[in-house]
Design a protein around this nucleic acid. Structure first.
Lengths: 151, 151
DNA sequence: CAATTTAGTTAGCTATGCTAACGATTCTGC
DNA sequence: GCAGAATCGTTAGCATAGCTAACTAAATTG
């Protein structure tokens, strides 16, 4: 029943839209990535830190690994780097196996500065749009977020 | 400490829009990235290969490095991996310093398969939308492409 | 209380980013 | 035409970031 539909996906409008979206996302981030180097913190560390700072409080290592779609050993090393740099603090939990990871004041500051730098370039590009276009863009980002939830 | 007046960008609507967009792009690609592992080719190699296959023909190493926003030594090694895997061929040019990099038939095939896999997941998510929403999404991508050109 | 399950770490491999330093080739000034 | 400068790419060496396999420590279960 869905055979026809799934075959038609390949060259159909949804596929073309997806391809354009995919390409746009790649090019967008490739441009912004450059500004991250100014922070002196690697991309994976910065991304993990952002979960701790913006994602609503402390997490365990496993939760962090899942949020970042990375295996536990990888996250273990990323966190080790963050702790060494004084950006994250380890704490104990009731469950002796788990660790409680929390951003330090320094970590929070560094992340927000980096995030500001990144988004600044993008905001400049966006602010050259008319108010109407900006509003439209805002509404359509909601749509994008919906797409992502469906992934 | 902060002169808010000089840059109204900071807390303004354009900044918030940019932040949401930034976040959405990150999450979108993080999900799609998973499917790239099936190709057995690393992300940087895959991305460089895509320039050769989709970007309109052969390039020099320096051009490829610039397209990928990477330093020449990095691209040199990425290309070495692609050549070793039989996905890219080196050729000579009139200028004896430059190399001519071209995707092989195998490289073209692998890239297109990978791209299809990537975009397929996204297309499925998109195709669950109504026609109207899909049209809106198309408009968003147009705006997005404009933003990227302004970066 | 022994066996299993779960959380995190360690070890070791590959890939990807950088800078510095080096050849090889081409271009330039005289 | 040839010496010096500029350009292109590579090599070497370092750090980060991804993986699997194998390990330790703690909690849960039977």
């Amino acid at each position: 029943m869905t055979d026809v539909k799934s075959k038609r996906l390949l060259g159909g409008p949804a596929f073309l839209t997806a391809d354009r979206l995919h390409s746009a996302a790649i090019h967008l981030l490739r441009r912004l990535r450059v500004r991250d180097r100014e922070s002196g913190v690697g991309p994976a560390q910065l991304s993990a830190l952002s979960v701790l700072v913006l994602g609503g409080g402390p997490r365990s290592l496993g939760e962090l690994a899942e949020a970042e779609q990375v295996r536990p050993p990888t996250m273990s090393r990323i966190v080790a780097g963050l702790v060494r740099a004084g950006l994250v603090r380890r704490g104990k939990t009731e469950d002796g196996r788990r660790v409680r990871l929390e951003a330090t004041a320094k970590g929070t500051k560094i992340l927000q500065q980096g995030r500001r730098r990144r988004v600044e370039s993008l905001a400049k590009a966006v602010s050259s749009f008319s108010d109407k276009e900006q509003q439209q863009l805002g509404e359509l980002i909601g749509l994008l977020q919906q797409v992502i939830r469906n992934l």
